[in-house]
Design a binder for these strands. Structure first.
Lengths: 178, 178
DNA sequence: GTATTGTTTCAAAAACTTGTGAAATATTCA
DNA sequence: TGAATATTTCACAAGTTTTTGAAACAATAC
């Protein structure tokens, strides 16, 4: 999969996949390491301790600690109930596997606020233009910003529909510019 | 909008909006400056030269040059026909405004390949496991990777449907893990 | 209670990204 | 063609993000 002599295929395979999911997640605006950790947990038969994760991904305890805290905030990993059978006292972690749950969570908590903020920004900008002179330039600017506002509204509606019904249509977007 | 004395409201408003669209675009995985430039062009009544853009956004000619090249590659800005009426010899630029066109372009050229690459990676990983021992750990790993493969497939199907019909449903995602 | 191991915090190092300035190249006008 | 201006390229500087290592803190076993 990678280096000269792949002596442990399982390990290699897990890292290979984790690395790629890491890229995917980075692409979606998360830190690469979050995707790597989620994947290692998802691919593991049993919950792993922070130390085990660190060993598999060659990361320091502090890096793991920070990353796990963030993953937990997103509800993407969970603390596993500790099977206290003689086990040392280590917390262990498992991956959430409800993908739509995780995705919709992020859409709700991160993308939706962002679209709303966009509408807000454009409204503020339009207001700031309230007593600007009525020349062609201002008229054009106002018109363009009204278009952007409609666009942001269409985007928000699309997201909200997707979140509540699980379906979305790009029709409104296609009509832009209105 | 911003600083102590906003002496030119138009300028301020444009920068304010451009700044925010910049953040949006950054969020979607593009460089912030690409969003800022597109916005300044979109809000402008007429095409602008690189120098004018640079002046408005306080960017060096080299930064503008690089950014415009990238925007052009994405089909998000166009070289305006030069109204050669005594005009100096400067290229000028206008913003594409077909938003769905731009979005679907990016989905097709960037996100779709990424999902396909994901399927490919997981398939390769599964193959690499072909002659691994048949213990519980391997079985679990294989099973988990098959799930991820289905997930990636569902994602790809969703994207492809969205691109060809303008509609998408998260149903398949909701069924995960299969 | 104390020793041991695990976890968190945080300042600073390392890695990475983005923007600049200078030089090279290209274009326009006369 | 040559002068003037515009554009591109690229090494490096500035800024940002991510990871680390040390120390503080917490939890458990004995």
């Amino acid at each position: 999969m990678a280096h000269p002599a792949p002596q442990d295929p399982l390990k290699d395979v897990r890292l290979f996949v984790a690395e790629h999911v890491g890229s995917l997640m980075e692409f979606w605006g998360f830190k690469r390491v979050l995707g790597r950790i989620w994947t290692v947990l998802y691919l593991s038969e049993r919950p792993l301790t922070a130390a085990e994760i660190g060993r598999r991904l060659a990361l320091s305890p502090s890096a793991i600690s920070v990353a796990l805290a963030e993953l937990k905030r997103w509800g993407v990993v969970h603390e596993a109930v500790v099977l206290s059978t003689r086990t040392r006292r280590a917390q262990s972690w498992r991956a959430e596997s409800d993908v739509w749950g995780m995705v919709s969570n992020v859409l709700r908590q991160r993308e939706l606020p962002m679209v709303r903020r966009t509408e807000e920004v454009i409204r503020t900008a339009l207001e700031a233009l309230a007593d600007a002179p009525q020349d062609a330039e201002t008229r054009h600017l106002r018109q363009a910003m009204r278009s952007l506002l409609l666009l942001a509204g269409a985007g928000r509606a699309m997201l909200e529909t997707l979140l509540s019904t699980g379906r979305a249509s790009a029709e409104a977007l296609k009509k832009f510019p209105a």
